[in-house]
Design a protein around this nucleic acid. Structure first.
Length: 583
RNA sequence: GCCGAAUUAGUAUAGUGGUAGAACAGAUCCAUGGUAAGGAUCAAAUGCAAGUUCGAUUCUUGCAUUCGGCACCA
């Protein structure tokens, strides 16, 4: 998918198209007030205050029509420069523009662009004439909070996209349409990976047999990696006393996003939203020497969060999920090495899954936000500088984002952009000086003095659920063999003559821990073969006289039409090799 | 949660102010020896609750859920 924001010429075109949109809206709704109309990865949008008017589908068609009309008129787009006071005078009717102008420095050159009867404050640049803005489409619309703050008024946001040629536009729209085919919710249904039902509850998907196989493989995969690196796995309960979360501080920060508390026999419980406090308590269970550290506690942990209804999205974001969680207790001297170990693990895993399209973010606190962040500037400065130093030493490239830290500490987030929808965080590693102190954790250092450890919180696969969603979308449902619910589909040519041999092959494959499906229904070979293709099964065997007499198999691999005949032994070792080496 | 839209068999859908029509999947029967759909028959649906109406799946309202965004994401 093309990134319009990164294409200079398309950016100018799309931004100009945002002005065209604004002009059309102004024609149809003379009282409209305009906030901003930036270029984004997939085109442009404009945030507009239409008073009490809410945009609907019909309005969009009308606006599009008006845009076409203006474009046909072919007015030139003319730049003017003006002083701050002139600008304030010119846009005095529009409080949003006044806000923008007031935020500019006094000596900044302010410019605006005029096309026909419409002038908008803008830095530019723009295309020469609206005539060039022919091949556009308004793609979606929604409410959007002014300045991105839910406490503010909701403006109307209209999205669109513009290209130089009709062909480019059509191609783009087609791509957009075909991207929907790889949506994990569609694939999850088609391939019987997960389901959900109102009676079970909103945002509570259930894994079907196929999905649970993938789940178990991922669980097994990451635990093996972790074991080799000295992690110890634990199991802790999904319900916890409210006091536990009050101690950690999560209750104050997140009680609105937790399932409400339950009272039983005078005790108050919640479904746990995360596992940090449990792991803190496990560390505290015995007295640790500095020689024990790092202590790496890990858990594939079931968590429950009362996510906003509008945030739910298949298994990418539900109200129950399984975190690939770990808390690593270290001495201050060990932070760097241990952090590097986590980063190495993340990229080792990404290599196994062929994940190359990611970017790293150093998420810092917003020093202005005294509400969210634990109020200890010294602690924060130490943690942030420490983490930045570690990242620089490790030598990974990252961008810094203010206000993205956890309430207890800064973190490294590894974000990916899935084929469908917005970027999200897949892996994270957080540096925490805060919770160990709150839980009064101690280890005895060399000098015999009890000291507070530092904790790294980390998740590699993030949540198993989200990771599966990501994999499904990236692979279009054609998972690597080791994750495939059915690895080999076996079709006897004729049940009467070949079922015995098919059974023999099936048994041998099962003995080699290969997941098979023996399709012994009374159907034509072509019919059964087609089903294997639709279910995206990687290997299909067709077994007839030829194979039976020579102890061979004839296989066809997903995505090819080639038929290959090899000995049964060769086939089994080939499959085993592909599984073991996660090809 | 907020803005907008949608909701028809298991699935993806057509259609209508007089209660629904194909397809795939399913069941039964027939046929069936080689790389993407053999045939016949049967069974199966208008999200829930009100309102308007002689009559509502269709119109209106509320609720639920889903989808596209916004906000949120320990």
């Amino acid at each position: 998918m093309i990134n319009i924001k990164e294409d200079k010429e398309l950016s100018v075109l799309n931004h100009s198209c945002a002005h065209l949109l604004a002009q059309a809206v102004k024609h149809l709704y003379p009282n409209a007030k305009f906030w901003v109309g930036p270029v984004i990865e997939d085109g442009f949008y404009y945030d507009i205050d239409l008073g009490d008017k809410k945009i609907t589908d019909e309005d969009i068609s009308a606006i599009e029509k008006e845009m076409k009309k203006i474009s046909k008129d072919g007015k030139r787009i003319v730049r003017h420069e003006l002083s701050k006071s002139e600008a304030l005078e010119m846009f005095k009717e529009d409080p949003y523009k006044i806000d923008l102008i007031n935020n500019m420095s006094d000596n900044e050159v302010i410019s605006c662009y005029t096309q026909g009867d419409f002038t908008d404050l803008c830095r530019g640049p723009h295309v020469e004439t609206v005539k060039l803005l022919k091949n556009f489409k308004l793609t979606k619309f929604s409410g959007a909070y002014y300045k991105g703050d839910a406490n503010n008024k909701m403006l109307q946001r209209i999205y669109g996209v513009c290209f130089f040629t009709k062909e480019d536009l059509d191609n783009y729209l087609e791509e957009l349409e075909s991207a929907k085919e790889r949506d994990h919710r569609k694939l999850g249904k088609d391939l019987e990976i997960f389901m959900s039902d109102d009676l079970v509850g909103r945002g509570l998907p259930m894994f079907l047999p196929n999905g649970y196989i993938i789940w178990q493989e991922l669980d097994n995969y990451i635990k093996n990696k972790e074991r080799k690196l000295g992690y110890q796995h634990v199991m802790t309960p999904c319900v916890g006393n409210v006091e536990l979360y009050k101690t950690s501080g999560h209750w104050d920060h997140y009680k609105e996003n937790m399932f409400p508390k339950m009272e039983v026999d005078g005790e108050e419980f919640v479904l746990r939203p995360m596992n940090c406090p449990h792991h803190m308590m496990i560390f505290k269970n015995k007295l640790h020497s500095y020689k024990d550290l790092p202590v790496r506690l890990a858990e594939i942990a079931h968590d429950f969060r009362y996510e906003a209804s509008g945030a739910l999205k298949g298994i990418e974001r539900g109200r129950h999920f399984c975190q690939n969680d770990s808390h690593i207790f270290v001495t201050p001297e060990q932070i760097k090495d241990e952090f590097k170990g986590v980063v190495d693990l993340i990229f080792d895993v990404y290599k196994d899954f062929n994940i190359t399209n990611y970017h790293c973010v150093l998420s810092l606190r917003d020093p202005e936000d005294k509400e969210k962040y634990y109020p200890d500037d010294e602690m924060w400065n130490k943690a942030e500088n420490n983490l930045r130093q570690v990242l620089n030493d490790i030598g990974i490239s990252y961008t810094e984002e203010i206000g993205e830290a956890a309430f207890y500490g800064p973190k490294l987030d590894v974000n990916v952009k899935p084929a469908v929808g917005n970027e999200y965080t897949l892996s994270t590693c957080q540096l925490d000086f805060c919770l160990p102190a709150k839980f009064d954790l101690k280890y005895i250092d060399k000098d015999g003095v009890a000291k507070t450890p530092v904790v790294l919180h980390r998740a590699i696969l993030g949540s198993i659920d989200r990771f599966m969603a990501y994999l499904l979308e990236e692979t279009k449902g054609v998972l690597p063999l080791w994750l495939s619910p059915i690895q080999v589909n076996i079709i006897p040519v004729n049940n009467e003559y070949h079922l015995d041999y098919a059974n023999k092959v099936n048994d041998l494959l099962i003995d080699s821990n290969i997941r098979t499906n023996l399709d012994d229904r009374d159907e034509k070979v072509g019919y059964k073969l087609r089903e294997g293709v639709i279910k995206k099964i990687l290997y299909t065997l067709v077994l007839g006289d030829n194979e039976k007499n020579n102890n061979t198999v004839t296989y066809r691999k997903y995505g090819t039409e080639e038929k290959i005949t090899i000995s049964l032994d060769e086939f089994i070792s080939m499959i085993k090799d592909e599984i073991v080496n996660k090809k």
